Amino acid sequence: MQNSHSGVNQLGGVFVNGRPLPDSTRQKIVELAHSGARPCDISRILQVSNGCVSKILGRYYETGSIRPRAIGGSKPRVATPEVVSKIAQYKRECPSIFAWEIRDRLLSEGVCTNDNIPSVSSINRVLRNLASEKQQMGADGMYDKLRMLNGQTGSWGTRPGWYPGTSVPGQPTQDGCQQQEGGGENTNSISSNGEDSDEAQMRLQLKRKLQRNRTSFTQEQIEALEKEFERTHYPDVFARERLAAKIDLPEARIQVWFSNRRAKWRREEKLRNQRRQASNTPSHIPISSSFSTSVYQPIPQPTTPVSSFTSGSMLGRTDTALTNTYSALPPMPSFTMANNLPMQPPVPSQTSSYSCMLPTSPSVNGRSYDTYTPPHMQTHMNSQPMGTSGTTSTGLISPGVSVPVQVPGSEPDMSQYWPRLQ
């Protein structure tokens, strides 16, 4: 039975679970980093996980050691009161100082060594604690504590007292930064006198190289990059290397530039699409467009005044059976039934097929058609009795279509119309 579990990581490298990497692998990681390889490249070359490479390099940059820390136990506290007071002093002298600059000053002034120097995250935590204590304490208590930490007896009751030896409130920041720059020169002199001055200088240079600022491109470089971006948004590694040799930039910087440029292009394309949609959409909808001609068919113009009344309900007709019959029939052209047409008796099958359309009241044959006459024609229609054979009435077949029909004066039988409509 094995005491430890061995495995293979996602890159194909072998590791022992819970145990640190061998010293030979750690040394190779540092050597590759000094030669300029990126952590992701080191991870692929040595088949070590990216997190492990970053952790080893980060500890090497901070402490200069590649040895693993002790497994188990607690780390001794490195942010001692003396170190905290120095950090507060540096922050007062130059409020814009960075944590890694404070760390360098602690090393250069001999406050800490490589073994007990606090990390950048520890210094940031100390600065946050100082800021929170400043908010919790009152103004007087804060000034007393700062005077105690600074070891001075001057008056701290006013704002300019934060910067000793100065009279203009805006000047101390520059003086403090100048003092810090002077301390940086002392850093070089002190570290050069040490035993491991060369190694420390190499480590600091490598650290500065990794902690780079934003790349500033010249106009020629920007023009070359934009020209390549117009050709393709995704250049391959050969195109990037050719462009890197042409404009004297690292291939990694060119790759990052193209990634950022593609993101910018997507944002601009989104804005262009929004403007295009806004320009195509009308600002207001016309009133006429809300009524579609496919839904509402136009009603033909009436030929006679009587045809303006298109349904039985508008003429005072309360018989719903006839109203439904007229509205359900398709529109037909106007025609006239003459008196000489043969009077065919209704076929029983045809009569039964339209039995649902006729009223059940037996008085329908005896009703006159003056009910369908509009009010303004009552006088004219009353002067001509319906009993004469020459009287013409208008029957409504569908809305908007008038059918003048000659009705025999002897017997106005409704059943004569249905064979004609089939």
Rank of each mutant, 00 (worst) to 15 (best):
N3S: 12
S4Q: 13
H5I: 08
S6E: 09
G7T: 12
G7V: 06
V8I: 09
N9H: 03
N9S: 03
Q10A: 14
Q10M: 08
L11W: 06
L11C: 06
L11P: 02
G12H: 02
G12Y: 03
G12D: 01
G13P: 01
V14S: 13
V14E: 06
F15I: 04
V16F: 15
N17M: 15
G18N: 00
R19M: 06
P20L: 01
L21H: 05
P22K: 07
P22A: 06
D23G: 08
T25P: 01
T25S: 06
R26M: 03
Q27H: 12
K28G: 05
K28P: 02
K28L: 08
I29M: 12
V30C: 05
V30I: 09
E31R: 08
A33S: 11
H34I: 14
H34W: 10
H34P: 03
S35V: 13
S35G: 11
S35L: 15
S35D: 13
G36I: 00
A37N: 11
A37Y: 15
D41V: 07
D41P: 00
I42L: 02
S43H: 01
S43I: 00
S43W: 02
L46M: 08
L46C: 07
Q47G: 04
Q47Y: 07
V48W: 00
S49Y: 02
N50Q: 11
G51A: 13
C52E: 01
C52Q: 01
V53R: 00
S54W: 05
K55M: 01
R59P: 02
Y61V: 15
Y61E: 04
E62A: 15
E62K: 14
T63D: 01
T63Y: 00
T63I: 02
T63P: 00
G64K: 06
G64Y: 05
I66E: 02
R67D: 06
P68N: 05
P68A: 11
P68C: 05
R69C: 06
A70N: 12
I71K: 14
G72V: 05
G72W: 01
G72Y: 00
S74M: 02
S74A: 06
P76L: 05
R77D: 03
A79S: 14
A79P: 01
T80K: 07
P81F: 06
V83K: 06
V83C: 08
K86T: 09
I87N: 01
Q89W: 09
Q89R: 14
Q89H: 10
Y90Q: 07
K91P: 01
R92E: 13
R92H: 10
R92G: 11
E93A: 08
E93F: 07
C94E: 12
P95G: 08
P95C: 08
A99T: 08
W100D: 05
W100Y: 08
E101I: 09
I102M: 14
I102R: 02
I102G: 04
R103F: 02
R103M: 04
R105W: 08
L106V: 04
L106P: 02
L107I: 08
E109I: 09
E109F: 13
V111W: 09
T113F: 13
N114F: 10
D115Y: 13
D115T: 15
D115C: 09
N116C: 11
N116R: 15
I117R: 15
P118E: 02
S119V: 03
I123Y: 02
I123K: 03
N124A: 06
N124G: 06
V126I: 14
V126S: 07
V126P: 03
V126G: 02
L127C: 11
L127I: 10
R128C: 06
R128H: 04
N129M: 07
A131S: 08
S132P: 09
S132C: 12
S132N: 14
S132F: 10
E133D: 14
E133G: 10
E133I: 10
K134Y: 08
K134N: 08
K134S: 10
Q135H: 08
Q136D: 14
Q136H: 11
M137F: 12
M137D: 11
G138R: 12
A139R: 13
A139T: 14
D140I: 12
G141Q: 13
M142C: 12
M142L: 11
M142A: 12
Y143W: 09
Y143E: 14
K145F: 09
L146C: 11
R147L: 14
M148E: 10
M148H: 15
M148N: 11
L149P: 15
L149Q: 10
N150P: 13
